[in-house]
Design a protein around this nucleic acid. Structure first.
Lengths: 262, 262
DNA sequence: TTTCGACTATATCTTATGAAATACAAATTA
DNA sequence: TAATTTGTATTTCATAAGATATAGTCGAAA
């Protein structure tokens, strides 16, 4: 795979999504920004609907999503697949590549192409030793991903199809909001109903039924690749949506951490 | 909460489970062992069937499970709960406490009491800066937990009750095997059928049906708190069990990591 | 403009799983 | 020892979701 060198000369340029995300919880220092830009030197584009990492292969690189979506999944003998989680702009694919170079689950692109930046994960060690706060932010990101997967478990385990669907749409909406790429109550989702079904553990027919129901009740509206959440308050009620990890991220305060006070 | 000081004078003592786990993938150096023992200075005991951490509370401590089981869960308005994951001996509860002091999901003990060691998560920063390989091992542990949750998503999303049950039992069995506290094909599980139901997104009645079916087919056997896996090969076939992260952990090799070669 | 393929929509029938009720068995407590 | 609680076992019935089939829709290619 060939990687193109991209140029972000100054931090005055529009921040890449990972920095937007970090900056959202805590303003970054000039030098931290420059350090993070080192992870953004090489970019590549993956075609839509393409398997990008295959379960079992060895690839000791990490990737930052710049544009487009990807998903991690597992294929089953039945021919079905289960989507484990989505990677949206600002998310890191294979954040543990340093210690787990063997890919545990395949990663593929959705119905839009994907632009990622590639970095050698051992650069992180150097980065963290110079800027310990970046280690904190990276850890915070991992904690967020953990919480996001926990929500996926709760959806699949104890929510009805109806609740699941509302819940997932709300979560995607809020994750996109943090990196500031959606409007008031609408977002662009490069997904098919088949992918939604594989995410929520439903059949294609049933996700269709459920989306139609939500539409008929004027809770959502779906066009080509755009999704409107028409009544977020009511959707939240239906979905029992109360995600801590997204609402309270502004509270990160490194002053409490002795080893970073100096 | 009061913590009792515990004493492990020399590494010749029997390793605590976290060290057993680390040592299983890579032999630890004498000084690394001593460093890790700093995380094991204070221990406490939590009664069985007790909520240990409550969703929303602030508790910037991490805990290492020494003995007994705990689980992380979410309570729903319906009165149901969904178990997200289990903490077995050697697992760390709140591994991200440093950056996420607000507890996202409640943690409770199962039907046996729990012994944990408590440590200040910012000790990790110091530890990792002196012994970078410990950072690698910690990261490996996080990667493993991520994979374990991914398996939970797959079970809930695309497996039948029958498959789910077989799969979970196999995973618990293998996780316990790493820390060496089970026999050939049996393990002690301080679980009720209600907890299993809440883990696998099933009703109490249905998990009972399913367990009975597995027993009738001579695949498992359950007594008081002991579970036998009578035909692991067949169970693996049924469950489509092929967990990378557990089978291939011996392969961790830090020689490949430039920044740790020196 | 037609054809093609991918996605969405809907109906019909089937089945896995849930809910409610009840019995039993074992462990705790009085 | 009886009384109470807690967990397991099983039945009967209801229903959410799956499977299969078929048709509409829409954009891309030709």
């Amino acid at each position: 795979m060939k990687y193109k060198l991209i140029s972000y000369q100054s931090p005055n340029d529009d921040f890449p999504p990972l920095l937007k995300k970090f900056n959202y919880i805590q303003p970054l220092a000039e030098e931290e920004i420059l350090a993070l830009m080192k992870l953004h030197q090489y970019s590549t584009i993956i075609d839509k609907e393409t398997v990008f990492l295959e379960q079992g292969e060895v690839r000791n690189k990490s990737f930052i999503v710049m544009e487009g979506w990807a998903y991690r999944y597992s294929s089953l003998e039945s021919g079905n697949q289960q989507i484990i989680n989505y990677y949206l702009p600002g998310d890191v694919i294979s954040p543990f590549a340093l210690v787990m170079p063997k890919v545990s689950y395949s990663v593929a692109t959705t119905s839009s192409r994907l632009q990622v930046c590639v970095f050698e994960p051992d650069v992180l060690i150097e980065l963290f030793s110079i800027y310990p706060r970046l280690a904190i932010l990276y850890g915070w990101m991992l904690g967020r991903e953990d919480a996001s997967m926990a929500e996926q478990v709760i959806r699949l385990g104890r929510h009805s199809a109806y609740k699941r669907t509302a819940h997932l749409l709300l979560e995607l909406f809020h994750r996109l909001k943090v990196i500031g790429i959606n409007d008031e109550n609408t977002f662009h989702a490069p997904l098919t109903q088949q992918l939604l079904a594989d995410t929520l553990g439903l059949s294609l027919v049933h996700i269709n039924r459920t989306l139609k129901k939500l539409q008929k009740e004027n809770l959502i509206n779906i066009s080509a690749k755009e999704i409107w959440l028409l009544d977020i308050t009511k959707l939240k009620q239906i979905a029992e949506y109360r995600i801590y990890y997204l609402d309270e991220i502004k509270k990160l305060n490194t002053a409490n951490i002795p080893s970073l006070a100096a």
